[in-house]
């Protein structure tokens, strides 16, 4: 890791002006002739192995890695597409809309299966399920729920133990939370019943998976619903406190996507990064160098559970649809 540099996030002094980053780090030789600006929703800790692998392979490029929430990423790219070269986000719908609206440049030169890319400009590279994270202590002596139905029953059976101790995404803030919620709602009515039950128990709303995991681990809340599984499973240190459950009734699996900003001044460098990410990701996964579950492109995803990259992703981004959905969601969870 000769070129590994860690630069503490410089609040309010980034190139994008007054933008408040969740995190910002530099990878690679700071004197490298090319600097790639990557805007991502993925926590730096999870993505660092991939970035280090890239700057090791291509020493002439250094990476300025910015972390922001998915909705913010969408905003930044729409207002100034030239300020970032590569955009990575877990909010498939927002990424899809960016590509559909022409904010993604084509990247050619490698074979990506049809289901893992859209227009050769939006590429999926991970497969991450939404999970239920429970505090082991809170379920000591009781059966750990395996399905949403189980969870509803458990919450109803012991409302007092769970009051103000259930959490989920605030779908008004989090793009990924909104994506998970809309896909859940599309799949099953159970989602709405669960939301109502959680609303009755005064559910805590979170911006991100990381915070939910922390709170479950600390025991502040007992159950978190729709937590990003990859983040939860990456926390080896919390394995005694939390249990990560893949719901057995149905799963909602998100694919993290990457695109090259159409406004990038360095399309070649950005394309090189994307190619590297797609080609090396799986190998890094196998080597356990990263806990991000990279896609195995040779294995198509299960039809139902993985959210498909298709125009229908625009549906819930529709103003009328989202107004209606959010109203319903608020009705259910805020009481």
């Amino acid at each position: 890791m000769r070129y590994f540099f860690l630069v503490v996030a410089l609040v309010c002094s980034g190139p994008a002006g007054a933008q408040q980053w969740e995190d910002r780090q530099q990878f690679g030789d700071p004197d490298a002739p090319t600097l790639l600006r990557v805007l991502s929703s993925t926590d730096t800790a999870l993505f660092a192995p991939v970035l280090n692998d890239f700057v090791d392979t291509v020493p002439s490029v250094s990476i300025d890695y910015h972390v922001a929430a998915t909705a913010e990423i969408d905003q930044v790219v729409r207002t100034s597409s030239a300020s970032f070269d590569v955009v990575i986000s877990s909010a498939m719908d927002l990424q899809f809309k960016l590509a559909n609206d022409g904010f993604a440049a084509r990247v050619d030169g490698f074979e990506q299966p049809e289901w893992a890319q859209w227009r050769s400009s939006l590429f999926a590279f991970t497969s991450e399920p939404a999970t239920i994270v429970v505090n082991r202590e809170a379920f000591a002596g009781a059966a750990v729920p395996r399905t949403r139905q189980d969870l509803i029953r458990a919450l109803r059976d012991r409302p007092d133990s769970f009051r103000a101790r259930v959490g989920t995404y605030d779908v008004r803030q989090s793009g990924l939370g909104y994506l998970f919620a809309t896909q859940d709602a599309r799949t099953s009515e159970t989602f709405w019943r669960l939301m109502e039950v959680m609303g009755n128990l005064d559910a805590q709303l979170y911006c991100c998976s990381g915070a939910m995991i922390e709170d479950v681990a600390s025991g502040k809340i007992a159950v978190a619903y729709n937590v990003l599984g990859s983040y939860a499973m990456a926390r080896d240190d919390l394995v005694d406190q939390i249990e990560v459950i893949l719901p057995q009734d149905f799963q909602t699996i998100m694919m993290r996507t990457v695109l090259v900003s159409s406004g990038t001044p360095n399309p070649e460098g950005a394309a090189t990064f994307v190619r590297h990410l797609l080609q090396r990701g799986q190998a890094l996964s196998t080597l356990s160098a990263t806990s991000l579950p990279f896609l195995d492109f040779t294995r198509p995803p299960a039809e139902q559970s993985t959210i498909a990259l298709e125009p229908a992703l625009l549906t819930y981004l529709d103003r009328l649809k989202s107004q209606r959905f959010l109203a319903e969601w608020e009705d259910a969870i805020i009481q």
Partner: peptide, 16 residues
């Protein structure tokens, strides 16, 4: 209210 179905746009998926 226009709560159009997911299929309204899903059906527009093409090979290209």
């Amino acid at each position: 209210e226009i709560d159009f179905p997911y299929a309204a746009l899903s059906m527009l998926n093409t090979a290209s």
